[in-house]
């Protein structure tokens, strides 16, 4: 029953998203330019790392390939989450314009409608760039069947963690509209941090990124396993396999926050 519901919601999601893709295609030039521009900007992002390594041999013991693996996997998870549900950030606008009220009169769960609304493939550029960097870094990994499994689960769980962070922090807008910047600090901020080996930060930061905003599970712990490294911070080895758990927990927490946000909205009408 619940599974049928989930499949149905997913179908509704794709139906709405498809409509937005077609809407974007009404302005093909603008679509292509935006996608290219987006790809270019994120591309330069990695070039920055590259230049850094032209002057350094390693970053706290991590080579360029290893950093590329961290960077690629985090970017990929972020790009997938951002593409799939990026519009959840706009709840504040939906509230102000009354669009949320309209969504509340439709027989599709609000979260599905909000996430699929204004779906855009503009971030295709970021996605491609992340995939290329990740693919390149993968050629340096010494693959075993278990490592393949960990890599796949890393990408899926990373997506879930970012999904949870996006949804969870966007909910702040149910209480105080126009707090997008606050949410961005955790979502995009978290993503930026994970592009580097986390041992460059003080241990307190790593603890925060593990237990509070669990972005360390997006790439850091599973990548340590993929690279066959011991944890420089001495965290339990089990963490390297705990990404799915972190993903599910983050998402569950986010859904709870979402529900109470919607309840707050429908009981204040703000």
């Amino acid at each position: 029953m619940a599974e049928a519901g989930a499949a149905l919601h997913l179908r509704s999601y794709f139906q709405i998203a498809w409509l937005w893709i077609r809407a974007a295609w009404q302005y093909p030039t603008s679509f292509v330019l935006l996608a290219l521009g987006n790809g270019l900007i994120t591309g330069l992002d990695f070039v920055g790392l590259w230049i850094m390594f032209a002057h350094l041999d390693d970053l706290k013991g991590f080579t360029l390939h290893e950093v590329a693996l961290l960077y690629g996997s985090a970017s990929l998870a972020l790009a997938v989450a951002d593409t799939a549900i990026g519009s959840v950030e706009r709840i504040g606008t939906y509230i102000r314009t009354g669009r949320l009220d309209q969504m509340l009169t439709k027989p599709v769960p609000l979260l599905v409608q909000v996430c699929a609304d204004q779906f855009t493939l503009r971030r295709l550029g970021r996605l491609t760039q992340a995939a290329v960097v990740f693919g390149w870094a993968c050629t340096y990994v010494d693959w075993t069947p278990l490592r393949v499994l960990v890599a796949v689960s890393m990408l899926l769980s990373g997506g879930l963690v970012f999904f949870g962070l996006f949804v969870g922090f966007s909910c702040v807008q149910f209480w105080t509209t126009d707090a997008t910047e606050f949410a961005n600090a955790f979502t995009y901020g978290g993503a930026t941090v994970t592009q580097y080996p986390l041992n460059i930060f003080p241990r307190e930061v790593l603890v925060g990124l593990t237990f509070v905003i669990p972005v360390a599970f997006v790439n850091w712990y599973p990548c340590l396993y993929l690279l066959g490294r011991s944890d420089p911070a001495g965290m339990p080895e089990a963490f390297q396999f705990a990404s799915p758990l972190a993903g599910v927990l983050t998402m569950a927490a986010a859904l709870l926050v979402w529900r109470s946000g919607v309840r707050h909205y429908t009981s204040t009408g703000s």
């Binding site: 809407a23 009354g98 309209q102």
Partner: peptide
């Protein structure tokens, strides 16, 4: 139920009417 807010459209701005209706059929 059906709801029409006179000052706010529920239709998708950039798309032909038909596409909005098709989506509603699915929803």
């Amino acid at each position: 139920i059906g709801v029409v807010f006179g000052q706010r459209s529920t239709l998708w701005w950039d798309l032909p009417l038909r596409d909005s209706f098709d989506l509603l059929q699915k929803m």
